[in-house]
Simulated scan of single mutants.
Amino acid sequence: MREEEVKEKLLKGIEHLACIAVVNSPRSVTLSGDEKTIDDLEQMLSTFHPNVFKARLRIENAFHSYQMDRFDVEKELLSSLSDIRGLPLKDPKQMFNQKCAEARLYSSVIGGELSDKIPVDAHYWWTNVRHAVRFRDAVASIAQNNDATIFLELSPHPVLATSIRECYESANQQPLILPTLKRKENEQITILTSLAQLTISPDIWQQYFRTRNILSSNEDEAYFDDFPLYAFQLSSCWYESKESVIKRLANRIQTHPLLGVRQLSGQTTATWRSL
């Protein structure tokens, strides 16, 4: 359901008990609040909106809701993070990588691109804990600025792929979304598969050369093409004489409990001699 629809049909009048915690995409949100209220909302959706997808998150705390205002959570967090200034570094010697320091950052806290005027300090991180996550707005801003079409999700299991695709629908684009881990699947296979998909994607190389001023944007098509994947031929390459076939198959099961002993003959079909 859309954010406006959820506020009007589900949360109207109970904003003090439940609220929107995350705006995932143009038609998906996450609710947070009192457990009993969430149970009632789940029952309401099942009754009046059976076609709406819903899933319960297995967490103990109602983040991004009024419950974060209790137990001095804000005071403790601000005190713990008070040393974080969150301002851009001016001295290149303090930068881990000067090129990375020039990267454009998008924030789900403000729902858009972070400017140098917005300090990522303790108050910023408290806002991240207390208020709704504007994931849809952040991804939509990336799509609008045409800054990225490839996403690498760093999480124990990919959960954002559907939301990202829905955010890109209005831009008529199909982003490439790759996981780093998948639940109950081999970790090395997952990360190496994503790495392989990156290496064959023209978009990643175009972005690489553009950001390093190697090629201008209007020269991309002259240097890149969508090469087809290797066409594997699945025909058998096992060449074997008739005599070899007979000998190999005959030695596979020497004695059958019912038919007896398999005979070596000039026929490719099996013949047996009863004991």
Rank of each mutant, 00 (worst) to 15 (best):
N24R: 08
N24Q: 03
N24S: 01
S25R: 05
P26K: 09
R27F: 10
R27P: 04
R27D: 10
R27S: 13
S28G: 02
S28K: 09
S28L: 06
S28C: 10
S28T: 02
V29G: 06
V29C: 08
V29H: 08
T30N: 10
T30A: 13
T30L: 08
L31I: 02
S32Y: 00
S32M: 00
G33C: 05
G33D: 05
G33Q: 01
G33A: 00
G33E: 06
D34W: 02
D34G: 04
E35S: 09
E35M: 02
E35D: 05
T37G: 00
T37P: 01
T37H: 01
I38D: 00
I38R: 02
D40V: 07
D40G: 00
D40Q: 04
L41A: 03
E42N: 05
E42P: 01
Q43N: 07
Q43I: 00
M44H: 13
S46K: 14
T47D: 07
T47S: 10
T47Y: 04
F48Q: 14
F48D: 11
H49G: 00
H49M: 11
H49C: 00
P50H: 03
P50I: 08
N51P: 01
N51Q: 15
V52T: 15
V52A: 06
F53Q: 13
F53A: 13
F53C: 12
F53G: 14
K54P: 03
K54D: 04
K54V: 08
A55Q: 14
A55M: 11
A55K: 15
A55C: 10
A55P: 00
R56E: 10
L57N: 09
L57H: 13
L57T: 11
L57Y: 05
L57P: 10
R58I: 08
R58V: 06
R58P: 00
I59N: 08
I59Q: 13
E60I: 07
E60Q: 14
N61I: 12
A62C: 06
A62I: 10
H64C: 09
H64V: 03
H64N: 07
S65N: 01
S65E: 04
S65W: 08
S65F: 09
Y66H: 15
Y66T: 12
Q67R: 15
M68C: 12
D69F: 06
D69G: 07
D69W: 04
D69E: 14
R70Y: 09
R70S: 05
F71G: 04
D72N: 15
V73C: 12
V73L: 11
V73R: 08
V73D: 03
V73Q: 11
E74D: 03
K75T: 12
K75Q: 14
K75R: 14
K75N: 12
E76P: 00
E76G: 05
L77H: 03
L77E: 02
L78H: 11
S79I: 07
S80Q: 11
S80K: 14
